[in-house]
């Protein structure tokens, strides 16, 4: 029987290993052929030109911009929501808000994309000009998409802080707000950081919603209302018709994305082990 458990346990490891092998086996030769610095640092993405050029720097920047925008919008809202849910929310209201945030996590990303396309993009077009499909639109929608992750993880982190800290602060004459923001929140910072990192992971890997609303131009945007193409979008948009080195270059784009996710996961582990050490 233990053998069965062992088999199920190694399934996920095997999956990760297979994905790694597939990605690197197909992607690394392409990077070698294009040249590492031309691939990662090149600003020209023109696979159909003669000769073709395969620089994904714009997409790397695009992914980072879009993720940063999502963090700027999603993190403050998410953390403050978590504080409210954990410390201030009256029970009847909690029964409404909590399931609502959980529902937010269950909505398929294509629906977020539609919402962005029908509501956010026209709003940005009418308010700020441009055609609406932009870095800003992607940031707003991704910011909403990462809310449930940040709220959920942060709320449990805040709830895990021992109550005597709160009482100790009140007993010194601090208000409830000060006690929460100066004692409870700092005490839960590693948990909250873990939530933020998870949110970053979700934002950088998001594809469907982003394709619909980001504009997808290969460029380094100079304003929030300009279009942007992410690494994920690059793969999905061109995978269908690509062949040869072009196809391999797209897989190599996946390698770069994979390395990003790997870095995020590692930093997540580092945060975890540090917080365990500090108790």
């Amino acid at each position: 029987m233990q053998g069965v458990f062992f088999l199920t346990a190694i399934t996920s490891i095997a999956a990760v290993a297979l994905i790694c092998i597939f990605l690197f086996y197909n992607g690394v030769p392409a990077i070698a052929e294009i040249g590492f610095f031309d691939f990662v640092g090149g600003q020209q993405w023109a696979p159909t030109n003669q000769p073709p050029s395969y620089g994904i720097f714009c997409m790397i920047v695009g992914s980072i911009y879009v993720t940063a925008g999502a963090i700027i919008i999603g993190v403050p809202i998410g953390i403050l929501t978590a504080v409210f849910l954990a410390r201030f929310c009256p029970a009847p209201l909690y029964k409404i808000i909590k399931p609502a945030t959980e529902l937010l996590a269950g909505i398929p990303s294509i629906v977020y994309g539609f919402f962005g396309l029908m509501v956010v993009v026209p709003f940005i077009r009418d308010t700020f000009g441009g055609n609406g499909s932009s870095l800003l639109a992607a940031s707003v929608v991704l910011g909403i998409m990462i809310l449930p992750t940040i709220i959920g993880v942060s709320e449990s982190a805040i709830r895990a802080v021992p109550e005597p800290y709160y009482e100790g602060s009140l007993a010194l004459g601090a208000t409830r707000e000060r006690s929460v923001f100066r004692v409870m929140l700092p005490a839960s910072k590693s948990g909250i950081l873990a939530g933020v990192v998870l949110g970053i992971g979700r934002a950088i890997g998001e594809t469907m919603a982003v394709i619909l609303i980001a504009g997808n131009q290969v460029q380094i945007p100079t304003s929030l209302t300009e279009g942007v193409r992410t690494l994920t979008a690059n793969i999905v948009l061109e995978m269908g018709y690509s062949t040869g080195l072009h196809r391999q270059a797209l897989i190599a784009t996946g390698v770069v994305l994979f390395v990003f996710i790997l870095l995020i996961t590692l930093s997540m582990q580092a945060i975890k082990s540090r917080s365990e050490k500090n108790g």
């Binding site: 005597p164 800290y165 009140l170 004692v183 700092p186």
Partner: peptide, 27 residues
């Protein structure tokens, strides 16, 4: 809050904040 400033309290179980010694006192 003024009352609690005038009437301090020490609890059964020591509850220093998870901060430095200095920040605990300065809080």
């Amino acid at each position: 809050n003024i009352l609690r400033k005038r009437v301090g309290m020490v609890f059964q179980k020591a509850n220093p904040f998870p901060m430095s010694v200095y920040d605990n006192i300065a809080y």
